[in-house]
Nucleic acid binder design. Structure first.
Length: 294
DNA sequence: TGCCAGGGCGCCG
DNA sequence: CGGCGCCATGGC
């Protein structure tokens, strides 16, 4: 086993069954399990309690949190970490400062409990197209079934990777597949929405890489796609465009607001990291519910 | 069996 | 503009 000592966040780079892996230090309280289990991404599954594997950016990858407060990325070298996974995992973001910022903006007890419970979640920077498509599929749907549809869609129309798994399909590939084929993946009434989005993105009517402006104007832009409303747009902006101020409201967040907040509470006052707060609240309320139905 | 799921559209007043 | 029925599908 060859081993190279590096500096910065990367502790070491090593070979593992013929593949490169890296170990990362200084990860704060980053939690792999919370991050991949909080409902923001649909292509990762646990290999163990602290080890999640899946596909992102067209690469098979797995993230393992060690007891020593470090992170091992299996299937990545140090360069890939620096220019891709660091940003994907939000390890270039100071979440301790974000937590302090959120807590300073409201003394609502549920919000404080949610931060305490959810802290360790990082908002991923997923691929914009994958995020848009995934959250179109998410509408009026549940997480296990969303995962199933996305897996089938990737299997059918995503590029095959070395290990036999599949990348998320490009907009071009889905556009070529067409609405009927998309419907056959059990997407139901969402098929025409996915087809429209794929058509606009692959045809250049919606240039995801050229989007700029504030979150509100980006939301308006994304809502031009049939099937993208405010909630899907804001989830895409939060999880795919790094817009941490985006505050998507789904059925769970509606329940949270009714249970714990005054009707006049203005969630925009949660500031530039309102989206992170939203994810804490979402994760917290699902935990409370699961505890009660057990 | 009926209800619900990380909603949005079309239509109605 | 706000409310409401509808949309496919599967798990409970």
């Amino acid at each position: 086993m060859s081993e190279t000592i590096l500096y910065g966040n990367v502790c070491r780079e090593f070979d593992e069954y013929g593949k490169k892996s890296v170990e990362i230090g200084s990860i704060g309280n980053f939690s792999v399990a919370k991050t991949f289990d909080c409902g923001q991404c649909f292509r990762f599954e646990p290999l163990s309690k602290r080890h999640y594997s899946g596909v992102a950016y067209g690469k098979s990858i797995s993230f393992e949190e060690t007891e020593k407060h470090t992170l091992i990325i299996h299937g990545s070298n140090a360069d890939d970490y620096e220019c891709l996974w660091k940003r994907y995992l939000g390890l270039d973001v100071d979440y301790a400062a974000i937590d302090r910022d959120i807590l300073s903006r409201s003394d609502n007890p549920a919000l404080h409990e949610a931060v305490a419970y959810g802290s360790g979640i990082h908002i991923l920077r997923q691929e914009p197209w994958e995020t848009i498509c995934s959250f179109i599929i998410s509408q009026n749907n549940n997480i296990p079934r969303i995962k199933k549809i996305i897996a089938a869609m990737s299997e059918a129309y995503g590029d095959e990777l070395e290990d036999g798994s599949h990348a998320f399909p490009t907009a071009d590939a889905l556009n070529k597949a067409g609405e009927k084929s998309i419907f056959e993946l059990k997407t139901g009434f969402r098929a025409k929405y996915i087809a429209d989005a794929a058509n606009k993105v692959s045809g250049g009517a919606l240039k995801l890489s050229a989007l700029n402006g504030d979150t509100e104007s980006l939301k308006t832009k994304l809502c031009e796609v049939k099937g993208i409303g405010p909630k899907v747009a804001l989830c895409s902006l939060l999880f795919g465009f790094g817009r941490l101020d985006a505050f998507p409201i789904d059925v769970w967040i509606k329940r949270v607001t009714e249970k714990y907040f005054e009707p006049e509470f203005d969630f925009t006052k949660l500031g530039p990291y309102a989206g992170v707060a939203q994810q804490y609240l979402f994760y917290y309320e699902r935990y409370i519910q699961s505890k009660q139905t057990k």
